[in-house]
Amino acid sequence: MTHIDEAPQSTEPEKAVAPNQGRAKKLPTRDRATVITMVAIPLVLVLLLVWLPAMLSVVLSFGKWNGFGDLGTIEWVGVQNYKDIFTIYPAFWPAVKHNLIWLTFLFLLPTILGMLLAVVLDREMKGSRLYQTAFYMPVVLSLALIGFIWQLFYSRDQGLINQVFNSEVDWYGDPDINLWAVLVATAWRHTGYIMLIYLAGLKGVDASLREAAAVDGASEVKTFFHVIFPVMRPINMVVIVIVVIESLRAFDLVWVINKGRNGLEVIGALVAQNVIGEATRYGFGSALAVIMMLISSIFITIYLRTVFREERNR
């Protein structure tokens, strides 16, 4: 989502406008107008709906404001909000840690599992469609609903898991366990998502590549790692971006479970706690949002650099 937002900023001004002038002689006025309109409208929308609010958030993050009265009532406090976040806000560092755990976990388990499932299902085995549908099913559900479904399994007193195993584990309440319980629920959905994307990619791989590898006597595993996987590079890139974005915007599930508290702190939920609902710490919440934006930009920058380097090499 966000990488799309940023892309036009760096490409459109030079790339879209420059060739435009060069081709101006060849293009009839009407076509030229069409092109300009097609570039200008999304650009204006992006600036207005993404960059303006983002910049306003940055501005607000230096103030203290509860939303009462006009903008004159904002008390400008400099970097106080950031200082508070880093020093006395107990939820912040756990949140950063949880986002990172989220990212690592998504990469290590559901992503790899999803790829594996895709490779297996790609072999056109019996009932492959059924499996495909079954694994993909959770993706259709919203994360909020998934949180609720898993609550039925995890509830300490009335949940299925504790009933079946006769245990008393407080799956959603124990701060040492609940993050992992939530990650399992996320994985349940994420695996199917990655599987589908990867499966689509695999179907697009030229069959002659496999044949050639087979003729050369390469084993299945070797064929995958040395032939198929490198060819799938664009899809791999998409998968990486999806995983990073998914883990940074981790929010819905923890919000449904306990509003992102008690072991489930993630940055997205902290922003919401402070600005949505009855608490109206707009300055403080904006500062958190800015921090989240900065962290995202690191990943986005890395991604964009890789993509552009590839384009240049082509």
Binding site: P53, A54, L56, S57, A144, R249, F251, D252, W255, V256, G268, A269, V271, A272, V275, I276, G285, A289
Partner: peptide, 9 residues
Amino acid sequence: AFVSRTTST
């Protein structure tokens, strides 16, 4: 901005 980023519940 916040709602779109976070899906308010």
